[in-house]
Design a binder for these strands. Structure first.
Lengths: 109, 109
DNA sequence: TTTTAACATTGTAATATTACGATGTTATTT
DNA sequence: AAATAACATCGTAATATTACAATGTTAAAA
């Protein structure tokens, strides 16, 4: 008990849910928005900007990387993170059909 | 420790994250898609369709109701659930600006 | 070469989530 | 009125998440 029963859902449903779950945390929303505004930033900036411990920011960045939404390039002893726009479009390609499907519904009750 | 530090984020970021978090579970994706396809359904249908225990389905429905995405109307001893289209559009109104913002980024690294 | 700065990783406590059996509630059926 | 059907809620075990201190790791600076 306690674990999501992934086997009973389709791969598409599991992928989509995983993406939305990763996006479903205010720190990760804030990270994506900040990286977006600055068009790439370094991790130290995020720590001061967001106000969470360095280990926590690093953990959130790891989850965003797990679905490929951001990528980091090493610049000396710093790491520059930015949105992976190609991957972001793929992600949109997973989300949009779902949203469209719900959009086409009418309230039957 | 262990709790999300909501105070350090904006209300908008917290609301958006909460919506995406609720959407970020395959069972809730499946529920929304099924309700959408059938244009309203009853809870018993969901139990047989999805394959989770009645209590679990009820719990997921409660979370979807918590953000107003679905509404249920009592029909005798059954409850008919359907998408709340007005609320869905509001939800889209929270999500779309965020997606647009990320869309307008370029990969700086 | 030692120090320092910028992360990543590990370990762990607090809390949240997921799933389900058991039980409650309410309305139809018998 | 008693039985049943369709949920909702409660209680709880298993697991996942969140956050941070402590500890690596790596590269520039001193």
């Amino acid at each position: 008990m306690g674990t999501t029963k992934s086997q009973i859902f389709t791969n598409r449903q599991n992928r989509l849910a995983h993406i939305l779950k990763v996006l479903g945390h205010p720190a990760r929303i804030a990270i994506l928005e900040y990286i977006g505004e600055i068009n790439g930033c370094i991790c130290t900036d995020l720590i001061t900007e967001i106000g969470l411990a360095q280990a926590t920011i690093s953990q959130h960045l790891k989850e965003l990387k797990s679905i490929g939404l951001i990528k980091g390039s090493i610049e000396g002893k710093k790491v520059c993170y930015c949105i992976d726009t190609i991957r972001w479009h793929e992600v949109q390609g997973e989300i949009n059909p779902f949203f469209s499907k719900i959009n086409s519904c009418y309230s039957a009750c």
